[in-house]
């Protein structure tokens, strides 16, 4: 994980719940479904996002969080829940 503090401009205090909700809303729009149908314990893999969509989501999340996200950390934190907890706990 690379936390590029020099470029940080966003609110660093987003909670795991806020991050999780953001991801679920994003995926729901991408999959044209309701946020309620998305299980936070599901892996990103299970949504079959193509790589361009995955990179796009990471980019939008970086803009929202105001920090760099290494896209490869998803291998270590493969579910929405784990990924959100990791990002919230990471300073």
């Amino acid at each position: 994980m690379t936390a590029d503090q020099s470029g940080a401009s966003g609110d660093p205090s987003k909670s795991a719940e806020e991050i999780q909700d953001w991801i679920i809303d994003y995926l729901a729009k991408e999959l044209d479904t309701s946020p309620n149908s998305i299980d936070p314990s599901a892996t990103f893999d299970s949504f079959a996002l193509d790589s361009a969509t995955a990179i796009g989501m990471t980019g939008d999340m970086e803009n929202w969080l105001g920090k760099r996200i290494d896209p490869t950390i998803v291998y270590d934190y493969p579910t929405i829940e784990e990924f959100s907890n990791y990002l919230a706990g990471q300073k």
């Binding site: 999959l31 599901a42 892996t43 299970s46 949504f47 079959a48």
Partner: peptide
């Protein structure tokens, strides 16, 4: 196992 985890049946079938 991976095929059984897809959110959409369509994606599971493609996999």
């Amino acid at each position: 196992l991976r095929a059984s985890k897809f959110f959409r049946d369509e994606h599971a079938q493609q996999f």
